[in-house]
């Protein structure tokens, strides 16, 4: 029986800039930030009140799984907004939206009533979209 999800990959254009975004704008905290042998930077962030799930912020680079061409294509897709991180939950969508906008987070949709709650849609500083959702209780 699977009991949870521990890590989810988010491809970003630059790990330093992504870390700054998730830590200083979104309010996440660093889970791990170490360089392992081979030079791969294992960088994870998590929501302080929900530390069980960590986002792995990884750059698509030429390597075992990506050819140079493939890595460049993925970077282009990130920039084009082809990928999404997922849904971030909040208790007050409008307030959190206002706070994030004040910090410079870009949104393509302000808080909007949906049948499942109130939802805003934004992007991280790589171009990955996310939803900010206040679930209907």
């Amino acid at each position: 029986m699977i009991t949870g999800i521990a890590h989810v990959t988010v491809y970003v254009l630059n790990q330093d800039e992504a870390l700054d975004f998730y830590q200083n704008k979104m309010g996440f905290e660093v889970g791990m930030d170490v360089t392992v042998e081979g030079g791969f930077r294992w960088l994870t962030v998590r929501v302080p009140s929900a530390p069980a799930l960590e986002l792995v912020l990884a750059e698509p680079k030429e390597g075992p799984m990506f050819s140079k061409d493939a890595a460049e294509k993925i970077r282009g897709l990130i920039e084009d907004g082809a990928f999404g991180v997922g849904v971030f939950e909040t208790q007050d969508c409008q307030k959190t939206y206002d706070e994030l906008v004040a910090k410079g987070v870009e949104f393509m949709q302000p808080p909007t009533e949906q049948f499942y709650g109130i939802e805003a849609m934004g992007t991280d500083n790589s171009g990955n979209w996310f939803s900010l959702t206040q679930q209907t209780s």
Binding site: F40, G63, P64
Partner: peptide, 10 residues
């Protein structure tokens, strides 16, 4: 690090 990431990236 988790083996799937080691395999994927390294």
């Amino acid at each position: 690090i988790p083996a799937c990431y080691a395999f994927h990236f390294l």
